[in-house]
């Protein structure tokens, strides 16, 4: 491969010691901020993302944007200038972050019950504080929790995960070194209960025969993530209800 690193050792371990299907440690918290309508923070390994949700509220700016039958989903993805190894000059507005903003918008249009809020707008802002691969996935997972924290109804949790393909083995939840390693990277957002795919993206060539295995690996990873997110939500609700009961 291009980086000259061995992404998968002969013993079947990855650069950071994980097994091919193993996810990085996930830690998350809902309701980190008081001012937004919903907020959440997630750590997936060394990738850290913060999501804030405002709305549903009146459509801001030009009225022409408003949709008569559903809510407008407005997303902005940005990265802290110090989040990457090399300092970034701008937090957002570059081609890469605009692309992720678009993807987030598509993902959440598929997941939020937008028809419940006609002529209104929901803002989802995601900030990457520390980047170590899987920025899109961490953003989706953080935003899901923030949307739930805001009390906006979803069809299901949206969980996202990346997967790569090295030496005929699918790898789940890639870190930065693995993403930069030059292999195939697939990003997938899943609504796990119905098995519906909200977003699918793959940027490199891959033999068609392998696509199924790769997608299956990503979907399995998404399902495991959904159990983690579900636990975070339940724990948060438990905490909130005991606090309000006192």
């Amino acid at each position: 491969n291009m980086a000259g690193l061995e992404l998968l050792s002969d013993q079947g371990y990855r650069l950071d010691g994980r097994k091919p299907s193993e996810l990085r440690k996930v830690q998350a918290r809902m309701g980190v901020f008081a001012q937004g309508d919903g907020s959440a923070y997630i750590e997936q390994g060394n990738t850290k993302a913060l999501a804030v949700v405002y709305g549903p509220h009146e459509v801001r700016g030009s009225r022409g944007k408003a949709l008569h039958d559903r809510a407008v989903i407005n997303c902005q993805f940005s990265m802290a200038t110090f989040s990457t190894a090399e300092r970034k000059r701008r937090p957002h507005g570059d081609r890469k972050s605009s692309e992720v903003s678009q993807h987030l918008k598509q993902t959440f249009e598929a997941a939020i019950l937008t028809q419940l809020y006609p002529r209104s707008q929901i803002d989802i802002y995601v900030k990457i504080l520390q980047s170590d691969g899987g920025n899109y996935s961490a953003s989706v997972n953080a935003a899901t929790l923030a949307v739930i924290d805001a009390g906006i109804p979803l069809r299901d949790y949206v969980c996202a995960c990346s997967a790569g393909f090295v030496e005929d083995t699918p790898l789940a939840d890639l870190c930065h070194a693995e993403e930069a390693g030059g292999g195939t990277v697939l990003s997938l957002a899943l609504l796990p209960q119905g098995g519906q795919i909200a977003l699918l993206q793959m940027d490199a060539r891959l033999h068609q025969d392998h696509l199924d295995t790769l997608m299956e690996a990503a979907m399995t990873a998404c399902r495991s993530l959904s159990t983690v997110l579900d636990r975070v939500v339940r724990e948060h609700l438990q905490e909130v209800t005991t606090l309000t009961a006192e």
Binding site: Q35, Q76, Y125
Partner: peptide
């Protein structure tokens, strides 16, 4: 110095 007034703080900061 660079100060990033991010949209996370308030929707007014979105874009520019």
């Amino acid at each position: 110095f660079f100060v990033d007034c991010s949209a996370n703080a308030t929707p007014e900061f979105e874009g520019r």
